[in-house]
Amino acid sequence: MSALTALFRRELTLAWGRGGGPLFAGAFYVGLSTLLPLAEGPSPQRLAAVAPGAAFAALALSSLLSLERLFERDFEDGALDLLSLGTTPLEAVAAVKCAAQWVGNGLPLAVLAPIVSIALGASPSLAGLTVLTALLGGLGFAFVGGIGASLALGARRGGVLVAVIVLPLFAPLVIFGAGSVSALAGGLDWRSGLLFLTAYSLAAAALAPFAMAAACRNALS
């Protein structure tokens, strides 16, 4: 087992260990989307019309929850020092951490996504695309979120800072992700939205590790 596989497994067990981050994120996601009918009124037509968009916005917010701990925990207890002393570049460390964040956190949320959106009144025929967009969006949320998490290292009230940094960067993901599902619901072309979503997420996965590694080095020095 290579060092990076070991790191990936460590990250996953840390995410699912005590504190159960992904469970909280899932509960938050469900809770948030339950508020919508309470605020908007229970009229099915009205809810069904906004369901895909509202569910995707709730997904974006739920993805924020565990970001604060992504680097902060290792930064505080000295593990980040040691991670930067291995033969593996810090860029790869950052990429693996975000990949584990995606699998540990994004995947459970993507499984919940169609349930949440059907509960809000979206047509069950949208479920497949809802999962797909949530998965691809989750990839972008994890890597873009990682940039925020690394920039906020050492800051007081880091969690809020992470949210403020990354929410604007989440906008394209929300636009394309929710847009694609809404387009399918309206019988329009949903492919272009999905492709833009994929492109943005892949670009984030390719570029964000460099930004994260630089931010971590800066925080460590």
């Binding site: 087992m1 290579s2 060092a3 070991a6 790191l7 460590r10 067990t13 840390l14 260990g17 005590r18 504190g19 925990r73 290792d74 505080e76 207890d77 000295g78 593990a79 980040l80 020092d81 040691l82 991670l83 002393l85 291995g86 033969t87 593996t88």
Partner: peptide, 22 residues
């Protein structure tokens, strides 16, 4: 700061760091 995670067992931590440090 020793980088050891309170919630993991000593064996898990030793395995991980041994592997990480080659």
């Amino acid at each position: 700061h020793d980088g050891l995670k309170p919630g993991r067992t000593a064996a898990e931590e030793l395995d991980f760091w041994t592997r990480w440090l080659g």
